[in-house]
């Protein structure tokens, strides 16, 4: 499978940044590491603090897995990366920053729509639009004003190939996406996410509703996608994190306990809490 997405050129900022601002240009998928940098982040749901002073760096074009027991803050942090939490009333960043390619994504100058185009998301439960397979992919581009049929056709094919789905659906592109199996629907959602050529793909337990075969296909797809995209995946499956991630971060009670190379975390973690969690002794 070969996918060659153009370097993203969408600017995240609404206006020209000031000379002192680090927000000096568009997100570039080819820019140096780290892709995402979190600095001393506190996050609140109302009065309840969900994240406590989290600092980490997510390298570009690698898969980073977030693990930890339910309520540890891993999905909260993931949703901070494309400001999905903004949609929840009462949420706020206390202190700290999140920078993507050096741009503070909570800076008032940031265009949130552009951010979400650059930081795509795949959810736990596949959520295709009640439209055709083709329209599920083309819809995002059409919203951006793309009307050229040839270009839309090309993007649909490239995205479906990129999501390892093309061969299975090429003869029924105009049938309802809801007729696909669960695994196919999830790969369609991945195709939809990559159609707009993001720099980062966030995956929130993308395989938790899938059978082992469909899970294997998605994991294989992740290995292909990381050649072009930075991937952050939240998973409750230790085996999945071990199999398909390069780095693993363990969270507990809203704190980052440990982040390291996956192989090290799963064979010789530095922190006792990490070891106890991954061996099933708590959580």
């Amino acid at each position: 499978m070969s996918v060659d997405f153009a370097t993203p050129t969408v600017s995240l900022v609404k206006t020209e940044p000031s000379p002192n601002s680090s927000a000096t240009g568009p997100i570039q998928a080819t820019a140096p590491v780290p892709m995402i940098e979190v600095e001393n982040l506190d996050f609140f749901y109302g009065k309840s603090q969900a994240l406590h002073g989290v600092s980490l760096k997510i390298p570009a074009r690698q898969v980073t897995a977030f693990i930890g027991p339910s309520g540890c803050g891993k999905s909260t942090l993931l949703r901070c990366f494309n400001r999905m939490n903004d949609l929840i009333e009462g949420t706020r960043i206390g202190r700290g920053h999140i920078k993507i390619q050096g741009i503070d994504i909570y800076d008032p100058s940031v265009d949130v729509i552009a951010l979400r185009r650059q930081v795509g998301m795949v959810f736990q439960k596949s959520n295709p639009f009640p439209k055709s397979i083709y329209q599920n992919i083309s819809y995002g581009l059409e919203l951006q004003g793309v009307k050229d049929k040839a270009r839309l056709d090309a993007v649909v094919e490239k995205s479906l190939r990129g999501a390892a789905l093309w061969d299975e659906v090429k003869d029924r592109l105009h049938t309802s996406a809801l007729g696909l199996s669960g695994g196919q629907q999830q790969r369609l959602c991945i195709a939809r996410a990559i159609a707009v050529e993001p720099a980062v793909i966030l995956m929130d337990e993308p395989c938790s509703a899938l059978d082992p075969i469909a899970t294997s296909k998605v994991e294989e797809l992740i290995q292909e996608l990381k050649k072009q995209f930075t991937i952050v995946i939240v998973t409750h499956s230790m085996q999945q994190a071990g199999r398909c991630s390069d780095k693993t971060a363990f969270f507990y009670l809203g704190k980052l306990i440990e982040m390291d190379v996956t192989q090290k975390v799963f064979t010789k973690p530095a922190q006792q809490q990490t070891e106890d969690y991954i061996t099933g002794r708590f959580g």
Binding site: M238, Q239, G242, F266, T267, K268, P269, E275, I278, T279
Partner: peptide, 9 residues
């Protein structure tokens, strides 16, 4: 069981 870390060792 898919053992990890010290259990695997």
């Amino acid at each position: 069981h898919g053992p990890m870390a010290r259990d695997c060792r």
